[in-house]
Amino acid sequence: MNGEQSSPSNEAWFTLSGDVNSDMVHRVFESVSRMTADGIETAHVLVQSNGGYVSDGLCLYNFLANSPVEFVMYNGGAVASIAVILYLAGARRYASDTARFMVHKSHATASPGARPDALNIIVEGLRADDARTESILRRHIELTPEQWAIHQYSDLHLTARDARTARMITAIADFAPPKGASLSNI
């Protein structure tokens, strides 16, 4: 084999970037459909996203975590906000040494002149979103009490080393498809 590395035929390499929204959900659904038709058992995915919509991120988390394809996630730059939740769907997770993660509570902007009953609905929705995302975070990562306190009221930024300590990632490693491997954008 001339010393060249190649990936097994049941593995594939992908990139996934952009806002977590209904377009990304559709792209992921289509891509996973092709993966299963092609007999892909393991998908290595480089994620680059600053977040987006909570419900779309939760949908992607649930879909990817329960897919017949095993997902191996990578962070080569930034995975933030709800993108962290979809990233946690990976059975194994890696981050480049220079990568960062950011998690925070949900937020929304009320319309000017919003009535109290409308504001209550917004607050109830935000609390529900926070409960859903925090249950996933607590299932996958172990933050210190100080980090949970920061998360409670502010953005919590984690380096790759912080993420390894918190068990968010398996190890610090780069997304590096083997020579000759096909690379597709989702």
Rank of each mutant, 00 (worst) to 15 (best):
V54H: 02
Y87H: 13
F14E: 05
I136F: 10
H157N: 10
S154E: 07
I141A: 11
N66S: 15
R139H: 10
G18S: 10
E134V: 15
T170W: 00
L46G: 11
A166P: 00
D129A: 14
L119Q: 05
M1Y: 03
Y94A: 09
V28E: 01
N62Y: 04
S22N: 08
S49R: 09
E30Q: 02
N120Y: 10
R138Q: 07
D23K: 14
E11G: 08
L64T: 12
E142D: 06
G18A: 05
S31Y: 09
H107T: 04
V20N: 05
A99W: 12
D97M: 14
V123P: 06
F101G: 02
W148H: 04
Q152I: 02
S9I: 05
S184W: 04
G113E: 07
D162H: 13
A108D: 01
V54E: 04
I141V: 13
I136S: 09
L86W: 13
T165K: 06
M1I: 09
T165F: 04
V47R: 12
N66I: 14
E41W: 09
L143H: 03
R127S: 05
D129R: 15
P178G: 02
H44L: 11
V20F: 02
L137N: 08
N120K: 12
G52L: 03
L137G: 06
L86A: 11
L88A: 13
Q5L: 01
D97Q: 15
Q152Y: 09
D117K: 10
F71W: 14
P178K: 05
N10W: 09
S9C: 04
H44Y: 06
V32E: 03
P116D: 00
N21L: 15
R139A: 14
R167S: 02
S55M: 03
T159Y: 10
W148T: 04
D117I: 05
D56E: 13
Q48R: 15
L16W: 12
L88V: 14
Q147T: 01
A171R: 14
N50G: 00
L64D: 01
N75P: 14
A37E: 04
A80D: 01
V54D: 01
S106I: 11
V20C: 04
Y61C: 12
A181T: 12
S7Y: 05
E11L: 10
A181K: 09
Q5A: 00
G125E: 01
